Amino acid sequence: MASQGTKRSYEQMETDGERQNATEIRASVGKMIGGIGRFYIQMCTELKLSDYEGRLIQNSLTIERMVLSAFDERRNKYLEEHPSAGKDPKKTGGPIYRRVNGKWMRELILYDKEEIRRIWRQANNGDDATAGLTHMMIWHSNLNDATYQRTRALVRTGMDPRMCSLMQGSTLPRRSGAAGAAVKGVGTMVMELVRMIKRGINDRNFWRGENGRKTRIAYERMCNILKGKFQTAAQKAMMDQVRESRNPGNAEFEDLTFLARSALILRGSVAHKSCLPACVYGPAVASGYDFEREGYSLVGIDPFRLLQNSQVYSLIRPNENPAHKSQLVWMACHSAAFEDLRVLSFIKGTKVLPRGKLSTRGVQIASNENMETMESSTLELRSRYWAIRTRSGGNTNQQRASAGQISIQPTFSVQRNLPFDRTTIMAAFNGNTEGRTSDMRTEIIRMMESARPEDVSFQGRGVFELSDEKAASPIVPSFDMSNEGSYFFGDNAEEYDN
């Protein structure tokens, strides 16, 4: 783990906690998980779902989305002020799938948001429990990260689609708070800032007046979040320049895209947490497990152990491969979309394939898809080993990566060399080191050039047997250095459309 220093740990961010010791953190995270579980059980009762239907990941996603929508204050306010045809701002819903006479049927349900809020609060001892809501947002974000390569979004903001390893959390809503900021990748933060800068260039009043003052505060806050992700002084200094700019424009845009590229080699610290679907927490609570009393951590053995003992089902389209669908969801559960496939294969105990080789589309089923041909199958979400999630980018030494994705962002704290394609990355730096950030740029390029592919990161860190909950005997895996390590390699994943 990167030293926490003055930073709060993510469990504290996750639970809005002030400084807590490890036991208190485990208890408050457990409380959050228990609340999600209780809410899910109650919703299944309301909807009269069978046990099997309640364990269907598509039903879980609909129920999670309903509660997130019920608590989305800004959108609710907007919907009330701008009524649109056929949208009731006070209601929320989605597809629920039921097994009827041996076939899967889709039923569109509609609930009062007020009623959903009441059920959620009741499951969370009367609190709004925003930490639990954020947790579900991060699960949705991790699922998107594993399912889609955001080529269009990258290109629109002047970045290269091969930089997708920097895009963790790119679909997280803005209201996801400190826990959300911690899991956002460098590219995601750059993209958010670039969008602001572009608006400022096109709209003279963007930075002016009372609204402009708020915009400015948001801009500086985002700059500080991004600065905190960088691990070298030169990158941090460049972020200070971007933040202090009187009138952010093209120079800042250039600096930010430069920094994003540099992060492929001088990786930023991005938190990883295993956020599971509500249909995993519900049955665990129903079986009598007391998360608050037992304590829970999002970055240790607990999620692995929970998945070892969970039964989750998914709808499967006619030509999809259930094992591939399982891999997709497994990666999402562990926030591992940008991790090295060699490491993932070792931990999972079966070969993890790149996205383009998977015969599976996303987990969600569109409303126009034919239910007649839908089957369902068990998702295999178990693992051979477990490993500690990392909050750091690993040290800054790398190795060759593949054509589709030119770097990785480690999820697990496991000893290995970190793949990246130096030639491709360095070719993108057209040696432009003039301007006010020239000395920093020169320094950053120097550090990137001296990074050695064969150097090892996370020295001495290994994986653990599932029986080793105290992480007492690390097993340090050895990897084939020459092997392909990137998930979005030469990829044809669908595009994420909101």
Rank of each mutant, 00 (worst) to 15 (best):
H135V: 08
A263R: 01
T215Y: 07
H140A: 05
H82Q: 14
E292I: 09
N432R: 04
K227D: 07
E320G: 06
E380W: 05
L133P: 05
D112Q: 08
T411P: 07
F304P: 03
S413T: 14
E494F: 06
L266Q: 13
M440Q: 13
I406W: 00
A260V: 15
A366C: 04
I445E: 01
D203N: 12
Q415I: 07
E320A: 06
N76I: 14
S84C: 08
L264D: 03
L56S: 13
E495V: 07
I41P: 00
V100H: 03
T130F: 01
G300R: 07
T360F: 06
A366N: 06
K357R: 05
E320D: 15
V190P: 00
K103T: 12
G54Y: 00
S478L: 11
L256S: 02
P419R: 01
R118A: 02
E484C: 13
P161I: 07
R26I: 09
I365K: 04
N319P: 05
T6P: 02
N395R: 12
A278S: 15
Q398D: 00
I445Q: 03
L344N: 05
L466W: 03
Q122I: 13
S310Y: 04
N397A: 11
L266F: 10
L276A: 10
P453S: 12
P161M: 06
L264G: 00
T350G: 08
F464G: 01
I57R: 01
R26C: 02
G485W: 15
Q42A: 02
L466C: 01
W207G: 03
R117P: 00
Y40E: 01
R243I: 08
A131P: 13
S392G: 15
R305Y: 14
G356L: 04
R389K: 15
A451V: 13
V186Q: 07
R305C: 08
W386Y: 10
A471F: 03
K348W: 05
M331F: 11
R156W: 07
Q327R: 08
Q399V: 12
E454W: 07
W386D: 04
F253R: 04
N202Y: 09
M191L: 15
F479W: 05
E210Y: 04
S413Y: 06
R75K: 12
K227Y: 14
T424W: 10
C333D: 00
